[in-house]
Amino acid sequence: MEKIKSIIEVKNLNKSFGSNHVLRDFSMEVVPGESLVILGKSGSGKSVLIKCIINLIVPDSGEIYVLGQNIRELDQDQMDKLRAEVGFLFQSNALYDSMTVRQNLEFPLRRHWTKEMRDLNAQSAVKEALEDVGLGHTIDMMPAELSGGMRKRIALARTLILKPKVILYDEPTTGLDPITAREISELMLQVQEKYKASSIIISHDMNCIRMTSDRVIMLIDGRNYISDTYENLQNVPDPKVREFFD
């Protein structure tokens, strides 16, 4: 198999909602193994960007390549197969309320594994994913019985169950207390290490960004304003950049 140079590549992406032009010719790429953070103010279009990458939102124009495939040229079946390689951690966790933790984790398997595979391996896959996030004992609990941090971990476990090549995190530490937020950031690093997955992290939590990023892109006015390491960005004198660090 030909080695892919970019895990994700976005070229000249545009997206508007009415008169609100959220993304303007936005371009970026993620290389294998990289952990890229998209930093921007609330409402700057960060979540819209990663939802465009997974095709939950259709952009107005531009190209998006995920694992070498132009997602706008894929049919539904091809898109579903590609989605098995891309994990998505939702800001609200998006755990299915009516299902137990086990059923939540098994849900992605029903589409991508055959019944025989599920019968043989689902239990061990669920167990492994839960142990990776340190919550093996919650397997038969309902999401409503879990704390905010636990729900985030379970949502991450569900993301990991198909062993994705790239994980998209939508504000993973928003709404959590500082200690839990730090634990989630550490967990993201452990996951990165174990699964060798690339990641795009949408965040404005500077601690999380400092801990998890290899590179940071600042999304300002719908554009890729600047891209550099966290350490280098700290020393950029531009007032628009300084706003985030001061």
Binding site: K51, A84, L95
Partner: peptide
């Protein structure tokens, strides 16, 4: 959305 992302 989570359901759609999981391929269902």
């Amino acid at each position: 959305d989570a359901m759609e992302v999981s391929g269902t």
